[in-house]
Design a binder for these strands. Structure first.
Lengths: 236, 236
DNA sequence: ATTAGTTCTAGTCAATATGACTTTAACTAA
DNA sequence: TTAGTTAAAGTCATATTGACTAGAACTAAT
């Protein structure tokens, strides 16, 4: 608690510093049920404030990169991932987000495919957590993740965002599992199937997924693009 | 065009500067038809770059105010308005938004009621424009306004945002006019009425609007709150 | 005072979308 | 061959939506 008057004076003079952070979602099989669940990677803080606590990956904005590039680079540096979906979440700028200085964080959120997520770097200081079992994070990062989850559920209910959490080919049951994992409720398989098949961006392939102990399901492919925002183009 | 090497070196060293801007929407009667139309206030730039061009109201972020407070203050200082609705739009951080330095702008958008908007300060350097007839603005502000309009239309199609552009009491026809102005298409009065009357946040008053040359319409009141985001709470 | 003109308001009706449910198909494992 | 499993298609009742009709309630003109 060394908030002496010199520090306060310094803080008042210095402009707010700008940081970029990312919330990265991927599906991984739950340890117990084996069903897909939402996970996200966090990094351990190695210095004060909040030393040793888990936090969202993030860092400063380089002078020669756009916000989106900074988020993308950041994500690659900490986890080795290249996301299929990356969008701005929100700019967080409350006065007391960090105890030592005023920080404005522009936060992005990303979706990565499970094959990629499985290869992601994990180490002493980078670890994946279930999105619904995070514990207490550094700064206001719990609130940020909550908001990202809320946005994800919202987009899921409408747009065709679920496909960015899947690989190139998938069965309709897999799509349903994504929805069930994110929205956290069961969906009627027959009605869900009817709904998805009415989406023009979903294309039948001639292939079937073999290996199950039941009738082999047809494989589909997603032909749509992410939405359209001001930068990359997206956000309803 | 004085981008000499000294300037470039300076720019590379300096961290990106942070600014807050606002897109302020209000309804005003169209000059020709008299029907309500979307307008927004712009300020004339009094220095380079883009000297004498029109731009969104904006300014720096003070050290002791939140992003939302900064937007709110900014809006009050340039137009004298206190909006009923204020929400973060997007953080714009492209590399070449400003020719002289790297600027990251966190942009808010606001809705004000027509009674207020009518009282808004207007001067040599502050003027209201029809949202669909802006001409060329400074920086990337045309793109920002376009995006704000897109977001407004999106929210309008779903949520109960239209009421923040109206006064405390309104007729169902007035609500429909707001939708028609923003979405730019005609709506069936009877069906629209059925839709709005199914909204629980809309409350009948015992009053009727007199003075028209036809059957006097009932007045209604909006009892809902803005949505819920991370700060103020909002954004689907 | 009557009538025409206007918008408000409450309905009808058909088409479409949605949720709950049933049935048949196609595979594996015993 | 049969039981078990999920895929896939279809049924049916209900809810929502768009297009439309008709009476109610006012003003303005005749």
């Amino acid at each position: 608690m060394n908030t002496n008057s010199a520090n306060v004076a310094e803080r008042r003079l210095a402009p707010p510093s700008l940081a970029i952070s990312t919330v990265i979602f991927a599906l991984r099989p739950s340890e117990k049920s084996g069903r897909p669940t939402l996970w996200l990677p966090l990094v351990r803080r190695i210095r004060e404030p909040y030393k040793d606590m888990w936090a969202l990956p993030g860092g400063p904005l380089a002078h020669d990169e756009s916000l989106q590039d900074a988020a993308s680079r950041n994500l690659r540096e900490t986890t080795g991932l290249t996301p299929h979906y990356l969008e701005q979440l929100y700019a967080f700028g409350g006065l007391h987000r960090s105890p030592t200085q005023r920080v404005v964080s522009i936060v992005y959120w990303a979706l990565v495919q499970p094959t990629e997520a499985a290869l992601a770097d994990e180490s002493e200081n980078v670890r994946w957590f279930r999105a619904d079992r995070l514990g207490e994070l550094a700064f206001d990062h719990n609130a940020i993740v909550d908001y990202a989850l809320w946005r994800l559920r919202n987009k899921m209910a409408y747009g065709s965002i679920a496909y960015h959490l899947l690989g190139e080919f998938f069965t309709l049951a897999q799509v349903r599992e994504v929805y069930e994992a994110v929205l956290d409720r069961q969906l009627d398989p027959a009605n869900f199937r009817r709904h998805v098949k009415a989406t023009p961006e979903i294309e039948e392939t001639g292939e079937y997924l073999q290996g199950g102990k039941h009738r082999p399901p047809r494989l589909y492919r997603f032909t749509g693009t992410p939405g359209l925002g001001p930068d990359n183009r997206s956000t309803p």
